[in-house]
């Protein structure tokens, strides 16, 4: 089966940032994304977990989107500008997709 090269952007972000990040992805013309709850983890400073929090301030989530390689740098830069002072991880990786026109 023929596949097409694309870029996968994976963003682990603080839950309070969700709306702003998704608005930014919309503005950047990203065709689609998936938001996943992150259950628990450990970062440089502290552990965190989804359950047992009264505020969303201590929660993290993951946003995944697939974009065309020609747009990846631009989108990553915009994401970095929004998140540069926050806790989180942004990664970019090469993937192959079947339906190229969707991304």
């Amino acid at each position: 089966m023929q596949t097409h090269p694309k870029k996968r952007i994976e963003i682990v972000v603080e839950a309070p940032l969700r709306k702003r990040l998704l608005r930014l992805l919309d503005r950047e013309g990203v065709n689609g994304y998936t938001v996943l709850p992150a259950i628990a983890g450990r970062g440089e400073e502290t552990d965190w977990q989804r359950e047992g929090q009264i505020t969303i301030a201590g929660q993290m989530l993951m946003v995944v989107c697939i974009v065309d390689p020609s747009r990846a740098d631009e989108i990553i830069e915009a994401v970095y500008n929004l998140l540069s002072h926050q806790y989180g991880i942004v990664t970019l990786s090469d993937v192959e997709v079947i339906r190229a026109e969707k991304f």
Binding site: A15, P16, E45, T46, T55, A57, G58, H85, Y87
Partner: peptide, 22 residues
């Protein structure tokens, strides 16, 4: 506050440590 303000502070003052104010 321990619900609305911590979330707002993560947006407005991300370098402030949540471990202290919470």
């Amino acid at each position: 506050s321990y619900i609305a303000v911590p979330a707002a502070m993560r947006l407005a003052l991300p370098e402030a440590k949540p471990g202290i104010y919470l």
